[in-house]
């Protein structure tokens, strides 16, 4: 017990016995935690397969990594392969929540008409009626729903006195003119006048997401640039660390975590596509076609 406890405590802290030259010494290691959120995801470190998520554990902890940068990659059949170069620091676990989406992203078209179950007693016909689901989804795309979010901004500013300063630093005028302010808990995002995505963390420093931090400190916000700019954005349903961004070339899922490469995954690469998030679902519209994105 007297011997075991210190050894166990050192081990739990990440200390490992290392062979340096002709002597053994303790070395403080770190780790990477991949929160895949799915089972059957293989995780590799520098192209070496290390572990796989399971039915019981949707995350993988890779330990015994000495300080440095590692290419962490995830693969799952039928899903986009992802990779990120993540820094590892002694005694710290670097966390990554990969944006695992099916490849291609499944879209369910919402037709204009749907068949009803009713049949005539004399003539066998299958009557079609207007699809009420489509009607309600189309309402989301009506111009009225895209009014500027000044009210929301005012509320945010009132609740967070230091926000004005942050927003001024982050190009406040563009905010007022754009209807793209979105908030998820303490994270707000919007599109600036150059078409770049700005994000600001409003919560306490202690609760800042790890992707905004390094051992030397945490940033208050970040900027995401996409090649042709972003026209519209929202948080991807079910995620606080990923966005759905509409660009001139289509709809994309964008990882907010910008460390070591950002995942930008195509959902529908078609110019003119529009998107809305409602009730935990993501809808796309292109011309007369409407889809629900099944992610």
């Amino acid at each position: 017990m007297i011997v075991g406890a210190p050894i166990l405590i050192l081990y739990a802290q990440g200390y490992r016995l290392a062979d340096i030259g002709d002597a053994f010494t303790f070395r403080e290691t770190g780790g990477v935690y991949v929160a895949a959120g799915l089972s059957g995801v293989s995780v590799s470190v520098d192209d070496e397969a290390r572990d796989q998520t399971s039915f019981l554990s949707h995350g993988v902890l890779i330990q015994n990594l000495t300080e440095g940068e590692y290419l962490i990659s995830t693969t799952r059949p039928g899903y986009f392969n992802l990779g990120k170069a993540l820094p590892v620091y002694p005694s710290i676990v670097t966390e990554w929540r990969p944006l695992l989406l099916p490849d291609p992203v499944p879209l369910r078209e919402i037709p204009e008409f749907v068949a009803t179950a009713a049949t005539s007693s004399s003539v066998k016909v299958i009557p079609f009626v207007k699809n009420p689901e489509r009607t309600s989804v189309l309402a989301l795309f009506a111009p009225a729903t895209s009014t500027p979010k000044a009210g929301a901004t005012s509320t945010l500013v009132a609740a967070n006195p230091n926000l004005v300063e942050l927003l001024v630093e982050a190009d406040l005028p563009s905010l007022v003119s754009e209807p793209t302010l979105r908030r998820s808990n303490d994270l707000i995002v919007w599109i600036d006048n150059l078409g770049a995505v700005r994000l600001v963390w409003l919560g306490s420093i202690d609760s800042t997401p790890q992707y905004l931090c390094s051992p030397t400190g945490c940033k208050e916000g970040d900027m995401i640039r996409l090649p042709l700019g972003v026209n519209w954005l929202d948080f991807l349903p079910g995620r606080t660390d990923a966005l759905i961004a509409i660009t001139p070339t289509g709809a994309y899922a964008v990882e907010i975590d910008g460390r070591g490469g950002r995942a930008i995954l195509p959902i529908l690469e078609q110019p003119g596509v529009e998107a809305r998030v409602f009730g935990g679902s993501l809808y796309l519209k292109l011309g007369q076609k409407v889809w629900e994105v099944e992610i």
Binding site: A12, G14, T29, I92, E95, D206
Partner: peptide
């Protein structure tokens, strides 16, 4: 323990140990 603790190797290993 807060985020600062929860990001440590110790925090991850505590439930395992």
């Amino acid at each position: 323990g807060g985020n600062a603790f929860n990001e440590t190797v110790l925090a991850y290993n505590l439930p395992k140990v």
